[in-house]
Structure formats: C-alpha cells, structure tokens
C-alpha cells in the first residue's frame, strides 16, 4: 500500500516530475501518482527508474496510476534525489502575512508578487516553522486556488499554517478555509513574541 498519494492530473510537464522528486526527497518509500497524459506517465516513470525506484503503471479512465516504490536502501543514496534534498522546517522561524499582496503599489503587481513568493517558498530547500495569515491575507488560504495549492504543499512539508479567526469571520470566509487551522489573537501574539526569526509581509 502506497504511503503517499500524488494527484498530478491537470499538470503540465515537468511539474509531475518535480512533485514526484519532492515526495521522494521527503523520504516517502512508496508513492501512488495519478497523471492524465502519456508524457507525464513516461517522464515520471523515467525519473523514478533513474532514481532507483520500481515503477508499475496501470491505466485508468482518463489517465494512468503509477505505483513507485523504492527498490531498497541503496536507492536512498540516489544522486537524483539527494541533489535537491529538502530540509525540515526551520524551527523558530515565523512568516506573518497581513495582506493578499506584497507591498504598496499597483494591485496587479502586488498579488503577482505574493503568488510568486508562496511558490518560491514551496520550491525553497528550507521552509519556515509557522506561517500566519491575517487580514486580507486569509484570502490566500480560502479564495485563490493557486495560492491554496502552494500553502497546502507547505503544510505537507510540515509548516504550521494558521489563519486568523477574527479575519475569517470578518470576511465571511471561515467555511472556506482550505489549508491550515484557525488561530486566535492570544496564540498568534505568543508565536510572534517567541519567534527567533520573524518575517512580516
């Protein structure tokens, strides 16, 4: 039984391979990857085999399911996976996000910057221990599918995602929280005060 499922349907190459690599780098021993096109099927298979895994492909309606299993301890040394090893969250580091855009200026630029910042966090070798979303920042974990996907990935990598409860209530978004958990002001205040490394956006 696979210990991790990856749904890569709707993703354009090389994204399915990038996600497979990330999952293997996190130490997953067996993956079940769903793809919806032949290019992704072939590429994920090639990558997994080169990384020392065994691959079993089965066809399903509208796509393929790939069962990827590490062939043994030797595979853990695989250069392919080691080259881009992702580390555990950096303890004591907190990122506070207080808006759905970065900086003051044209809104179009601000929201683009926020999206690319979250994507950069996903791609980075090191992620923060905690990310707190306040004020219009809660939109990033409720309304925008693209940023939700990034935050979910960060959550999978062990980042504690907290959305401000008062803010969710104010915007009427509590029901739509797609990633992380609700936090109150006492908890948030404690985290900000005790952070070794605080980045506020």
């Amino acid at each position: 039984m696979a210990d991790f499922g990856l749904d890569c349907r709707g993703l354009v190459c090389p994204e399915p391979v990038i996600r497979t690599k990330r999952a293997l780098a996190e130490g997953r021993k067996s993956l079940q990857i769903t793809v919806d096109n032949e290019t992704a099927r072939d590429n994920v298979s090639r990558f997994a085999r080169t990384s020392g895994c065994e691959v079993d492909v089965s066809e399903i309606e509208g796509g393929f399911v790939l069962s990827v299993t590490r062939a043994g301890s030797a595979a853990d040394e695989s250069a392919a996976v080691q080259a881009h090893e992702k580390r555990a969250p950096r303890s004591g580091s907190v990122i506070l996000v207080t808006a759905d855009e970065i900086g003051k200026g044209r809104r179009e630029l601000g929201t683009t910057l926020m999206k690319s910042f979250l994507y950069a966090c996903v791609e980075a070798d090191e992620v923060p221990a905690t990310m707190i979303f306040m004020n219009s920042g809660v939109r990033l974990v409720t309304e925008d599918d693209e940023t939700i996907a990034h935050v979910k990935t960060l959550e999978e990598r062990g980042v504690d995602i907290i959305a401000c409860g008062t803010c969710l209530d104010y915007y009427g978004l509590k029901e739509r929280l797609a990633s992380g958990r609700v936090g109150n002001m006492y908890e948030i205040q404690t985290m900000l005060i005790s952070a070794d490394n605080l980045v506020a956006l």
Binding site: V12, C13, E38, T39, N43, R46
Partner: peptide, 30 residues
C-alpha cells in the same frame, strides 16, 4: 531525458510521424 525532462511536444511529434520503425530494446533506446 532519463530524469523525466521530456517536453509534452515530443509526444505530439511522435503521434504525427505515422508508421515509423523505432528501436525499442532498452531504456537507452527510449
């Protein structure tokens, strides 16, 4: 290519070239 970096266009091209005879013996051929 062995790391799975083959672009999507490759597959389209493959479908376009009808009736090609390809060596398909091992991973290197692929």
């Amino acid at each position: 290519a062995s790391m799975g970096m083959v672009p999507e266009g490759q597959f389209r091209n493959r479908r376009y070239v009808i009736g090609a005879e390809l060596p398909m013996n091992d991973d290197r051929d692929d």
